[in-house]
Design a binder for these strands. Structure first.
Lengths: 205, 205
DNA sequence: GTCTATACGCTGATAGAC
DNA sequence: GTCTATCAGCGTATAGAC
């Protein structure tokens, strides 16, 4: 697997160096504002190497896409292996995504931000790709086991993860200047108990 | 104001015809995959006209941006003028956004989807732009009046609107093939009452 | 596998007639 | 204001040496 660190960039083998550099550039400037020459210079490789390994710029983007989707899948799979309750699984996934957003910003940004259809016309849109499908399936299992309200799985999944994803977007866009993990507890509370004022919730109970 | 309709495209004055065509093309292919020549051909105008009115492709994108942001602002402002309760205001905004997504798909897609920083480096990111700021402010007022739980305004705003925005994205990406208004009631219920199974909510009450 | 130099097409932009 | 013809620059991709 590929672990991207800027500091270690120069020590990586060519293949990984290209991917690592491309990730940084794509996230920073956007795919279309990065030329092969930019990647070539910053990664200290030749254009020929890039074409040898990836067959061009689109090939680089595609390889990146698969690497990072896989990384996200593993994150979700690890949570499932922990055999937590349904609700704890959801919380854990959100918690990990929040940590990722802080420690591996560009990975999350590339997966979440990019309109991959603009430059990867063959790939399915990201929300239907495996990690998100998996998350939807988790929700469906939670409904069947009665741990969560019944309903359209997409609506329920959006209700659970929508707030978290929104916060990640805000954080990536630089609108939020608070690290996401600090907001975790409050968000979890909001999503499970709803947005009613707490006084009402208590008076009902 | 600009009301974009594909059918009436050919009857519009040049200025609006360019904007309308550009909107469709930008959403369909993405800003960078659309050339001035594409716009020129499809809008039945000359390149000269485009440069006269907008000063270039970026100028077209910028004008579009302002038009559509303004349209969204008005949508929110109209809701505020109705003087509903805080909660009803939120519901109404979501309802209108859902309708917009169905009837004016490309407008919503352009405002929501695009990473405008990639091609409009001078503009602020969309989530911090006026309509979203306004929505956050509404939330803040709701907290002060006790109609909603206290907390970080971004977290609360994400809790309220995050699910809706997520569904809009899914719909725009073609993952959902149900018109959003049909999902409205269920979503609203989820967001106000939380994701607990309904049986538990009832037993608590 | 890695590199450099080069070719070719596309795109944004301009000039100048009407 | 609208148009066409044309230019200059950039970015992808290739060819061929090492």
């Amino acid at each position: 697997m590929l672990h991207l660190k800027k500091a270690a960039t120069q020590d990586l083998p060519v293949y990984d160096r290209i991917l690592s550099t491309a990730l940084d550039l794509f996230v920073e400037r956007g795919y279309h504002n990065v030329s092969i020459h930019d990647i070539q210079k910053l990664a200290n490789v030749s254009i020929g190497s890039i074409y040898n390994h990836f067959g061009g710029k689109e090939g680089v983007a595609k390889a990146l896409y698969y690497h990072l989707i896989r990384e996200m899948e593993e994150l979700v799979a690890d949570v499932i292996d922990e055999n937590l309750s349904f609700r704890e699984s959801c919380n854990r996934i959100i918690s990990l995504l929040f940590e990722y957003t802080e420690s591996k910003r560009n990975i999350v940004a590339y997966v979440l931000h990019a309109k991959h259809q603009e430059f990867l016309p063959d790939e399915p849109p990201i929300c239907s790709s495996t990690p998100f499908k998996t998350m939807r399936n988790i929700v469906q299992r939670g409904m069947e086991s009665g741990e969560i309200r019944e309903g359209d799985p997409w609506v329920v999944a959006s209700g659970i993860f929508g707030g978290a994803i929104r916060l990640i977007h805000l954080r990536l866009d630089g609108v939020l200047n608070v690290p996401l993990p600090e907001l975790y507890d409050e968000l979890i509370d909001c999503m499970w108990h709803g947005m009613e004022p707490i006084s009402i919730q208590e008076s009902v109970a």
